[in-house]
Nucleic acid binder design. Structure first.
Length: 504
RNA sequence: GGCCCGUUCGUCUAGGGGUUAGGACACGUCCCUUUCACGGAUGAAACACGGGUUCGAUUCCCGUACGGGCUACCA
């Protein structure tokens, strides 16, 4: 019988969760949903030196904003496998038990080497032109560990409270083969795998031990993680095997990485000219905060949508998907092997799409504080009409201002290009007629404005609409002209036309 | 350097032994529009290279190049 699908997202709280992490979480979530399984949030806080205040809370908030909520785990309610923080699990002695099992079966050993001794070994090996210095079946013979030291010395060291780590006893030359859901069969020789530290000298497990123990204990069916873990997967296979748990091992899936749009490599928060964090993130150790997608004006729907299409596609020409839709069609078979460069331009396009789907009232609500900041306030009805008018031109709510500010602010100058091209000695008479017609408008609505505009044309000939636009707003572009005039109000429009005709 | 993984338009990608190699973003042109957009149409734009296998390879195999990841008592 197939195991119940249980997957986990297991970040370490060493900083803000960036978009690559969110995508890993997303794929886990989608897979769980598709198969009616569980999605777990586990916090891998085994490195006390890298712990960052606020990171865990950030992760939880970010997942909530994205709408990819775990149904079990830290911040989302304890399930049957609590606690979900590895530091707490360590206190329960869970990892030590497994490490001891490996010691007992001879598949792990104690090592007493200090960090100076390890550095020294690497220097020695580099000097001897060893290309990849590592603690392994060969080099461990020259180091201080329970495989090289006499039994009673090991015993004395242990009883004397000497610092030690527990290392995996990796065989010298053995083919390790595993099947990755996304990559297929991968083969590595154990000579390439070092004797990984399983338990650190502070008693904390390393990732390698901890995630395996927890995946087993939490009955994880699929370990879905980034490609950066592929090289250590063979060591993990060995650990499962030596623990006698190979048959319970989760299936592995290594996701391709999200790459920088320009230049090379993984997305780096420092160099990126676009947001890399879902929510703004302030690292307590750094002065400047990183602005998030949310604060940049992205909708979570847009953010998740673009992420989903990085490294995966449905095989159709469709591109817009809600999380729920994705949960029906997502499959690892359609996940790519190669990394995907992130395209900020396309991300904006996605946001534009979702913005247009928003009701005008919601947009008005969101734009209100921005407008207030600029020193203007209008009633709800005005705001709704304004948003309706301008929304076709923007990708973000904050752009309502740039694309519509001339509705609030009378022009100081008039677009020179348009004026030079279109203003001539007949213009004054023409616009005098327009003014006269506008003054006669009783009900200042689009329909009547249009009628009176046509009346003016009947009297003086064709009126250049772009010129009219420039006289009123100062700029050559903008929303639908008569709609805009209706919104601005008769008084304002006539005032502006008066000013313009005076100046020219 | 070593090991592992990868490589279709600038970018995200579809496809797959015989196709005019399809779509999307961005870009160009046109249409619609008495203004501005939306929209519609259209254009330019790709199978990294070299060997095999095959009647035929972009597709399968092998090399090369290039890119990425890893190479810690970090995850």
């Amino acid at each position: 019988m197939e195991k119940r699908v249980r997957v986990r997202f297991a970040p370490s709280p060493t900083g803000g969760l960036h978009m690559g992490g969110v995508r890993t979480a997303l794929f886990n979530y989608l897979f769980a949903k598709k198969h009616g399984g569980d999605f777990i949030l586990r916090i891998e806080d085994t490195d006390q030196t890298r712990f960052v205040e606020g990171a865990e809370e950030y992760i939880i908030k970010a997942l909530k904003w994205c709408g990819i909520e775990p149904n079990e785990g830290v911040g989302f309610g304890d399930g049957p496998h609590a606690p979900y923080r590895q530091s707490e699990r360590k206190e329960l002695g869970i990892y030590k038990t497994y490490a001891d099992k490996l010691i007992a079966s001879g598949h792990a050993y104690y090592a007493f080497d200090t960090s100076e001794e390890l550095d020294e070994m690497r220097r020695r090996l580099e000097a001897a032109k060893v290309v990849a210095p590592q603690y392994n079946a060969v080099t461990r013979q020259n180091m201080r560990n329970s495989l090289t030291l006499p039994e009673d010395e090991v015993k004395n060291l242990m009883e004397g409270g000497a610092k030690y780590v527990i290392r995996l006893n990796v065989p010298r030359n053995e083919e390790i083969r595993f099947n990755d859901i996304i990559r297929g069969w991968v083969t590595v020789n154990s000579a390439q795998v070092d004797d990984k530290v399983l338990l650190k000298s502070d008693g904390m497990p390393t990732y390698h031990l901890a995630h395996i123990v927890d995946d087993i204990e939490m009955e994880i069916s699929h370990a879905v993680r980034g490609e950066e873990w592929l090289p250590s997967a063979p060591a993990h296979i060995l650990i499962y095997r030596y623990l006698g748990l190979e048959d319970q091992m989760p299936k592995l899936a290594h996701l391709p990485l999200i790459l920088n749009p320009d230049g090379n490599g993984k997305i780096s928060k420092r160099e990126a000219r676009f947001p890399v964090f879902p929510l703004s993130w302030q690292d307590p150790r750094e002065a400047t905060p990183y602005i998030g997608y949310k604060e940049s004006g992205y909708y979570p729907e847009a953010f998740v949508n673009i992420l989903a299409l990085l490294g995966w596609n449905p095989g159709t020409n469709e591109e817009f998907f809600t999380v729920d839709q994705l949960a029906h069609i997502f499959e690892f078979e359609r996940v790519h092997k190669s990394g995907a460069k992130f395209d900020p331009e396309k991300a904006k396009w996605f946001n534009q799409h979702y913005l247009r789907l928003k009701p005008d009232a919601e947009l008005a609500e969101a734009f209100k504080p921005i407008l207030k900041e600029k020193g203007f306030e209008r009633d709800q009805e005005f705001m709704i009409q304004f948003c309706k008018l301008v929304k076709e031109k923007v990708q973000f709510v904050q752009e309502f201002w740039d694309h519509g500010k001339y509705i609030f602010i009378a022009p100081q100058a008039y677009d020179e290009k348009v004026m030079a091209k279109k203003w001539n000695d007949k213009s004054r008479d023409i616009f005098d007629a327009v003014v006269a017609q506008f003054e006669a408008v009783k009900d200042w609505q689009v329909e009547e404005i249009t009628t009176h505009f046509h009346n003016a044309e009947a009297q003086v000939g064709k009126v250049d609409m772009q010129l009219l636009r420039v006289l009123i707003t100062g700029v050559a572009g903008g929303p639908q002209l008569f709609d805009m005039l209706a919104l601005m109000g008769k008084e304002e429009v006539l005032k502006r036309l008066g000013t313009a005709l005076n100046k020219l």
